[in-house]
Write a protein that binds this DNA or RNA. Sequence first.
DNA 1: TTCTAATTTAAGGTTGGCGTAAGGTCGCCT
DNA 2: AGGCGACCTTACGCCAACCTTAAATTAGAA
Lengths: 235, 235
Amino acid sequence: MDAIKNRKILIVEDEPEIRVMIEGFLRKEGFYRIYSAADSETALAICRSDKPDIAILDVMLPDMDGFALLTSIRQFSGMPVLFLSARGEDEDRLLGLGLGADDYIVKPFLPRELILRLIAILKRAYSPASSERLPVFNLGVCRVDLEGATVYRADEEYPLTAKEHALLLKLYENRGRIVTSDALCQAAWGDDSYGYENTLMVHVRRIREKIEADPSKPQCLQTVRGLGYKLIAKE
Amino acid sequence: MDAIKNRKILIVEDEPEIRVMIEGFLRKEGFYRIYSAADSETALAICRSDKPDIAILDVMLPDMDGFALLTSIRQFSGMPVLFLSARGEDEDRLLGLGLGADDYIVKPFLPRELILRLIAILKRAYSPASSERLPVFNLGVCRVDLEGATVYRADEEYPLTAKEHALLLKLYENRGRIVTSDALCQAAWGDDSYGYENTLMVHVRRIREKIEADPSKPQCLQTVRGLGYKLIAKE
DNA sequence: TTCTAATTTAAGGTTGGCGTAAGGTCGCCT
DNA sequence: AGGCGACCTTACGCCAACCTTAAATTAGAA
């Protein structure tokens, strides 16, 4: 289960032979969301509609050269780009001018090199460091920052403990839905969670003291008798 | 007057023929501060004494392989590195593991490609535009300059050591968020970080002695029991 | 080499989150 | 209405996680 292989890849190349060849390499490597275009116009349309994760651009295209295409793409997207260029041809422009390309490969190239550079770019661009984070969300009268493990309410800050954090995260991931006590115990104590029902109640109480205006009349973290708990979804 | 051509370049290559060839290319291109070494030991010595701006490393060396050499260099310098590798040989390691190499070239290569990639790296690493400088930031009662590795507090200067710097950088990059002990260990000691928990605590203590008014009552670098540490975000 | 500073190891001390338990309250069902 | 089971509420003691210090080790510089 490699997340990299789930990335959407766009190939822009006018020579059908090379295009099909690249598609073949990628499929053999395990990539399966492959788009291809033979001209800039089609390429741009695909970029807008399907939002690929990376583009492989040939420098020479019939209607617009690869640099112009990149400039157009950069109007609305910062997606990583890998250029294909003929030996010597535009190397100066490719490397000299910082066009925003992430790498380039000189034709003819070995499949292996293309794949490796592609994977390198994808890793760099989508490493967990730069990936999406948990949002700070509103919950009734308070704001919750799960990454900072802090609840803000009425000009006060309430830090969350480890268990509170685990439980609130599970509830947040399932906000608006009922989460069974079992599921919550599992989130906080792991698979061998048995006999923690009472403990869970205590933790729920502690969370309520932080997020609710009146912990005895819960508005956000509600009990669903016989089923579990649920976090009221907001926006 | 191109500042790039003033950069100091180190070539590490055991085969004299190739080494001399590369030197020739570089001189022809206008580079003139060229160091070369045939083995890792010499290379390390040059790195320490002359502090080149970039290193071109062959993967295969007589006394130590290029990866090990890079690891050694990374102990004291973040200089950019370009690898030379035989076709297919170590490509996976080169690109797969983020070893901290900036690029690589497969042998045999054209002089033109080496020069262009070299220039690209130098521009990326040293151009004022792309040199994303680390800001000097306020942290509670003190100011922290990560580039200068110095903390200023109460008319005093506290220099940061290497580990302190690595940890504080990681924390700063994730300010406001909890950073797990694991993540911190990884930032300071690399992927094979196991058994550094205690050491981490000692370093945290040291950092606190520099940035906190009262290290025993941390305001900036807080412990989140069971989860990790976090740096309080200020603006 | 020798000296210095940085880093790691080790050992004892501290504490706050956690789990337990006991009594209370509420809602549902007959 | 009354009983029962599900859930709430509070308080307290424990102990793992964390702190603190000092001494040992390592790495770098001269």
